[in-house]
Design a protein around this nucleic acid. Structure first.
Lengths: 341, 341
DNA sequence: CTGTTAGCGCGTTCAG
DNA sequence: CTGAACGCGCTAACAG
């Protein structure tokens, strides 16, 4: 690994001073066209890349932003990362993307890591915005940040997300108006993330609005849907009123639920309707399409970059906003079977 | 954004010299237990995080590794990124993950960006290892790298992947031995990536080994599967021998193909068998499971980190290796319908 | 065991 | 329009 060319190398190669080279690299101050050209040639010839480390040290600004996501493989966060990536590139920022694996201590250490890189700001999704050490640390250090997907009650530096509560309520009303009277919910452990809680609460509220109760609540490990098979089995084995519709707190759970139902010989949506949440691609790569709430995940990422930049410039005004969601109520959703409606 | 504490702040806070603080931070040299404790307290109190920029400048090593992937949302690369992330954390390295969006010029500029951060090395998947400017640049700068998913013919710094050719050939043989005689392939544009080419070539070879020809080749835009509907339609409208089995060069294409076939009233696998490639999660979240080749994507990422470290230490020996794949030949694969076998 | 100091590569004065 | 010199925060070498 031969050591990289420095600004000095360029300077001596051109017979100029480092100051002049620096000016050319940054388009600062008046430079003779001829000089600039010579420098560019040298840069090309020697493969010079300015050291971001030295630059950061000198200017006290790194053009790096930190990103902390619960998972890189979950399509929701992958799309978010992709949106961040793209917008950051446009803005001349380099993201350092870290995964917390839904682990609070990794959330904390990720913040610590990013602090060392003197990031301009941090974009992050935390398990629970109301009680996050990570956020507390960022507040304490005065590093601007923007939450993604979390829509906190308390005052925070910035946030971008969707209205999980409202969206879930809309699903409940939709299913009720379709004639469903016995409705269940499959949720990831909603003690763990504020999103799961909001979706649960919103769904209950929507049902109540139509004078319905939640007939069944199945809670499973959200990563591997551990226990789902058993629970589904249990519900449909006991005689009596099993739900004709299920709302699942995310699409991955919804797809898993459909697969389990099919194994029991239950047809979707003829016998049972299923609605997910997130609108991931896998849901559209099947027949019938998975009914879901589509959330603008990439836009959330991009908007978070913008929000961060706004905060940094100290522009007063809103600290965040919710983006619109979209009900995709076809495919795996249908009225209940005749005799049950 | 209050400015971060520096080593000097800690030093004066404790009434010590910066050197001592530095020693404590890096566990270097003998330190009185009491002194160390005082430093730790100060670090905690002031929220001090050593500046990676200054450290990199001084030590000429950044503990940052660069990562360039064609996409962050494709599950294959998302899993790879996740594997990298995890192993890098264990090794005290911080990855900077960039997406090239399958774009050659972004591939190049991503390398340029990473060079500025004095990365210890680069892990990357390129469109075509045999003709990559990005690789050429890395070679020229003497930056260690490790290809992921690309398994190049020429000598490179390092690589980790699966044997696409062999895996595809195994699928061909499997389908042939199941009784299929009329077999098609759905491929992403295989002029674009070496993986698609290898899979195509391997599949042809496997068929030839069983004295078969490829009955149909459908090429589509690999990102959105543009044109797939039309092509499938065309094949099954013309009377005569339509394939009883399709090999798709990745799972996303396979799932899209199944959906299209179902829209034409063709059942999978009763009428037509479908095999994908990659073994992504979406394939297992359906009934029947998608038949596929499972590739160890996260392990490829993790192994690439290891390979990079090996290369850096200049340990002689192999420059890379292929990891094993796994045939998952159930679910959407079955013998051809009786009258056609 | 601890302190002093040079210098990593760069951008930014201030002179010329 | 260009050059010389300083210092950002840190580690390593040397001194005590």
């Amino acid at each position: 690994m031969n050591k990289p060319a420095t600004i000095k190398d360029i300077a001596s190669y051109c017979g100029l001073s480092v100051a002049t080279v620096s000016r050319v690299m940054n388009d600062k101050g008046p430079i003779k066209a001829d000089t600039a050209e010579r420098v560019r040639q040298a840069v090309d010839a020697l493969g010079y890349a300015p050291s971001m480390a030295a630059r950061a040290l000198k200017t006290a600004s790194s053009s790096v932003i930190g990103v902390i996501l619960p998972s890189l493989t979950n399509p929701v966060f992958a799309e978010t990362a992709s949106g961040i990536q793209q917008r950051a590139r446009e803005q001349g920022l380099t993201p350092i993307i870290l995964s917390s694996d839904y682990d609070l201590s990794l959330e904390r250490s990720a913040v610590a890591t990013l602090l060392g890189y003197q990031v301009e700001g941090v974009l992050l999704t935390v398990n629970d915005a109301a009680s996050s050490d990570a956020l507390a640390r960022l507040d304490k250090e005065g590093v601007p940040y923007c939450l993604m997907h979390n829509v906190p009650r308390q005052q925070v530096c910035g946030y971008i997300g969707v209205d999980n509560y409202r969206a879930a309520a809309e699903v409940a009303v939709y299913l009720a108006d379709l004639g469903h009277r016995c409705i269940g919910m499959v949720s990831g452990d909603f003690q763990r993330t504020d999103r799961a809680r909001d979706r649960h609460a919103g769904f209950l509220a929507g049902l109540r609005y139509r004078n319905l109760e939640l007939a069944q609540l199945v809670q499973v490990d959200p990563v591997n849907a551990v226990g789902l098979t058993g629970e589904i089995h249990r519900v449909y084995e006991q005689a009596g009123s099993a739900p004709t519709a299920w709302f699942c707190s995310n699409d991955l759970l919804a797809l898993a639920t459909i697969a389990k139902l099919q194994l029991l010989g239950i047809r979707v949506p003829e016998d049972v309707s299923i609605v997910g949440f997130d609108g991931i691609q896998a849901g559209t790569l099947r027949q019938p399409n998975l009914a879901s709430i589509r959330t603008p995940n990439a836009e959330i990422g991009a908007a978070a970059v913008d929000q961060l930049l706004t905060n940094k410039r100290g522009i007063p005004g809103q600290t965040g906003r919710t983006l619109g969601h979209q009900l995709l109520m076809d495919g795996t959703v249908a009225p209940p079977p005749d005799h049950l409606s």
